[in-house]
């Protein structure tokens, strides 16, 4: 049919539709690679992504150093830096992932979104690609936070299991928030609206949790709200896992809830493509 001799295999009615699960993973990989490559091509942004959690760790670590002396504040070691390290990990994941949807908005403003949606890439793979990219960012940021925390003298008796669990909890929060951000981007299709909604939700999620403050010293209603806050689940589970005598009854249910919530939000974000396409 074509005149150019090429050994390539092009789509024909016979060779399409094979190996669907494998194709899903491969496509997710391509979408992830694209985002990571874009990040590395913007060195200032990439460096700031890693510097910001350091600022938070050191700034909050100094600013609120004396909160541990408030009666009722419970820490295993009496060291605030050790208390907020998992909190800053979760907070960093939360703030970075809130921006996930901006990639979609940029793609919509260009013709990239339309091209991808008219190609064989599945909607699920597009969501998995963006949340995987956010998780990679979160892992890099978490590494930096632990390095700085150790360098500043923090020690975590439960580190052997606690550090992997902190990474897991942070990644799950990334998936939850990035999926939410993607869904908002697809539903509202506007950068300003996405920023507004993200900020309206992220700050309360952050402060109505035990990320930087023990909720036991907060008003009772804050404690009640925190029980339903995924950011609190992640911070509490990580902190418990890093402590000397880990109460696994605190860790596993919260990780389970985070996992369930990531699946639900990932699915909802995938459904939001339908809403976007109805607007076309």
């Amino acid at each position: 049919m074509t005149t150019t001799a090429s050994p390539a295999t092009f789509p024909t009615p016979r060779n399409i539709g094979k190996g669907k699960p494998a194709r899903f993973l491969v496509h997710s990989g391509y979408v992830t690679v694209r985002s990571v490559r874009s990040l590395l091509r913007q060195p200032t942004f990439a460096v700031m992504t890693l510097i910001q959690p350091i600022i938070w760790l050191l700034l909050f670590g100094q600013l609120f150093r004396n909160v541990i002396h408030i009666p009722g504040f419970t820490t295993a070691s009496g060291n605030y830096l050790e208390f907020i390290t998992p909190g800053v990990v979760v907070m960093t994941a939360l703030f970075s992932s809130g921006w996930a949807g901006t990639i979609y908005i940029q793609d919509m403003e260009r013709g990239v979104m339309d091209r991808l949606l008219a190609s064989p890439v599945s909607r699920g793979a597009m969501i998995v690609g963006t949340v995987a990219y956010q998780s990679i960012t979160t892992i890099a940021q978490t590494v930096v936070i632990f390095v700085i925390a150790y360098a500043s003298g923090a020690r975590f008796p439960g580190a052997a299991a606690g550090i992997p669990i902190t990474f897991l909890a942070a990644c799950l929060i990334s998936v939850v928030i990035a999926s939410f951000s993607d869904a908002v981007a697809l539903l509202l299709r506007q950068q300003e609206a996405l920023i507004g909604i993200s900020q309206a939700i992220i700050l309360p999620l952050q402060f109505l949790s035990s990320a930087i403050m023990d909720t036991r010293v907060a008003p009772a209603w804050v404690r009640d709200v925190a029980r339903f806050n995924p950011v609190d689940w992640a911070a509490t589970a990580s902190r418990a896992a890093l402590s000397a005598h880990t109460d696994w009854g605190v860790v596993w249910p919260r990780l389970g809830l985070l996992l369930a919530l990531s699946v639900v939000l990932g699915w909802l974000a995938t459904r939001a493509f339908g809403n976007y396409q109805r607007s076309l």
């Binding site: 694209r34 490559r37 874009s38 913007q42 403003e109 260009r110 013709g111 990239v112 339309d114 091209r115």
Partner: peptide
């Protein structure tokens, strides 16, 4: 080939 450019500017 959409009206708007569909390439990735950072690639």
């Amino acid at each position: 080939i959409a009206q708007k450019s569909s390439s990735d500017p950072l690639a």
